[in-house]
Amino acid sequence: MPTILKKVNTKKNVETLRTAMIKSGTENGLNHPTTIKLSQNLDKLLNEYTLIFSN
């Protein structure tokens, strides 16, 4: 079972990565490699988040 600290850190990381992706998309465009990479990383982190909070 994940610890409370892991849950809090994962949630904070999701929020940080989401903000970075939105900023990149606004500044560079949605098809920019940086925006796409951030989106892919966010997808992976959201999958981890879902697993952590479903237990």
Results as ranks from 00 to 15, higher is better:
31 N>Y: 13
19 T>I: 12
31 N>F: 12
2 P>A: 05
27 E>M: 04
36 I>P: 02
13 N>F: 14
40 Q>T: 09
8 V>L: 10
40 Q>F: 09
31 N>G: 09
10 T>F: 03
6 K>E: 07
44 K>P: 01
4 I>V: 10
36 I>S: 03
26 T>S: 14
38 L>G: 00
7 K>F: 06
31 N>S: 13
52 I>M: 03
46 L>I: 02
35 T>G: 03
2 P>D: 00
53 F>E: 07
9 N>M: 12
45 L>D: 10
28 N>F: 12
43 D>M: 07
18 R>W: 13
14 V>P: 05
10 T>G: 04
11 K>N: 12
10 T>R: 02
36 I>Y: 01
29 G>K: 06
18 R>Y: 15
42 L>I: 06
21 M>I: 06
48 E>L: 15
23 K>G: 07
29 G>T: 08
48 E>P: 03
23 K>C: 09
8 V>A: 07
17 L>F: 12
16 T>P: 03
17 L>Q: 02
23 K>S: 12
7 K>I: 04
22 I>H: 08
18 R>P: 04
35 T>V: 05
29 G>P: 06
29 G>H: 06
15 E>S: 13
10 T>E: 03
13 N>R: 15
4 I>Y: 07
51 L>V: 09
40 Q>N: 11
3 T>F: 02
48 E>K: 15
34 T>Y: 08
36 I>E: 05
14 V>E: 06
48 E>Q: 15
11 K>R: 14
54 S>V: 01
39 S>E: 13
12 K>G: 11
7 K>C: 08
7 K>V: 05
10 T>H: 04
28 N>D: 14
26 T>P: 07
53 F>Y: 05
54 S>F: 00
16 T>K: 15
5 L>E: 12
37 K>S: 14
37 K>H: 13
24 S>G: 09
25 G>C: 01
21 M>Y: 02
40 Q>H: 11
25 G>E: 04
21 M>W: 03
30 L>S: 13
42 L>R: 01
19 T>Y: 13
5 L>Y: 10
14 V>H: 07
40 Q>S: 10
27 E>C: 02
41 N>D: 13
18 R>L: 15
